[in-house]
């Protein structure tokens, strides 16, 4: 019997190209459709080989990510994966469900980003006048509402999972194909982050300061991170503190109509990227 030759597509999210290989033509078609705007000809930095199998139903409850030497072991009812952080290669067993594929990619990106000072945030993000704005909050706070209310000149990066990496002047947000209620992939582009807003709905639009510790607490609560690993948690906490020092983080109380975007634009007018921020330097605890 001749084994089917794996075929590969390279998916580049957040500037990190990952080769996805499978011997199943239909699955290859599925992932090419799902990540259509994120297919890349760049040389892959990492590789995942997919082996399709009958697995359990999709579930968000029992995801486990743990380290075994250089390997990361990812498991949930609907997939199991092993990925070697040193070689950058790994294999995945999952069914054909695209949500399983999304979940594996999100976890892998969260591990890669944690090592590089970035993270995935449960937040909508959009580009307005060359700057990215992030909108985070508990489920129902208004992430998707903010994207639905966006005027035509706004570029949607995601309505669900924001992709954040450090850059020369702060942090940059990248578009992702990870869609939420909007069921719409973000644009494959990036922009420097002007602000992160934690959303609350109210009778009027207003922006309030958040104390740094409160900002870190809210940030940590919304970062997608699954690994049970102290070293990576330490890096993530350090990254969150750095992010809070370098990016304006505010509470945005908003009434859900299009005028909220005027409030966001006005904030942009007042924001000075090089202004000195009155935050104490984050220090590592011995």
């Amino acid at each position: 019997m001749i084994a089917a030759v794996p075929k590969t597509s390279c998916v580049e999210i957040g500037g990190i190209p990952i080769a996805l290989s499978t011997s199943d033509d239909r699955f290859l078609d599925l992932l090419r459709q799902r990540y259509e705007g994120f297919l890349s000809a760049s040389p892959p930095e990492f590789e995942l080989q997919f082996d399709l199998a009958d697995m359990g139903p999709v579930s968000d409850d029992d995801v486990r990510v743990r380290r075994d030497g250089d390997d990361w072991l990812l498991s949930r009812g609907d997939f199991s994966a092993r990925w070697n952080a040193r070689t950058g290669r790994g294999s995945v067993r999952q069914n054909t469900n695209p949500y399983s594929l999304d979940s594996v990619l999100r976890i892998l990106h969260s591990l890669i980003l944690a090592e590089r000072g970035g993270f995935l945030l449960h937040a909508a993000s959009a580009v307005c006048e060359r700057h990215a704005y992030l909108f985070s909050g508990v489920s129902g706070a208004g992430k998707t509402t903010m994207t639905r209310l966006a005027p035509p000149d706004i570029t949607l990066l995601t309505d669900e999972i924001s992709y954040l990496r450090p850059s020369a002047h702060g942090y940059a947000a990248f578009g992702t194909p990870f869609a939420g209620e909007l069921a719409q992939s973000g644009e494959n582009c990036s922009a420097p982050i002007a602000a992160l807003f934690f959303l609350e709905q109210g009778p009027e639009n207003r922006i309030d300061e958040l104390p740094p510790a409160d900002a870190v607490r809210r940030l940590m609560r919304n970062i997608l991170f699954f690994a049970e690993d102290r070293g990576l948690v330490e890096k993530l906490l350090a990254t969150a503190c750095d992010f809070v020092m370098r990016v304006p983080i505010r509470r945005l109380t908003f009434y859900p109509d299009s005028r909220v975007w005027d409030t966001v634009r006005n904030f942009d007018c007042n924001y000075e990227p090089d202004s000195t921020r009155n935050f104490q330097e984050a220090t590592e605890h011995a």
């Binding site: 104390p211 740094p212 510790a213 906490l237 503190c241 935050f279 220090t283 605890h285």
Partner: peptide
């Protein structure tokens, strides 16, 4: 993991 920021320990 612990980190001090703005006078508070996280």
């Amino acid at each position: 993991a612990a980190r001090a920021l703005a006078g508070e320990m996280m």
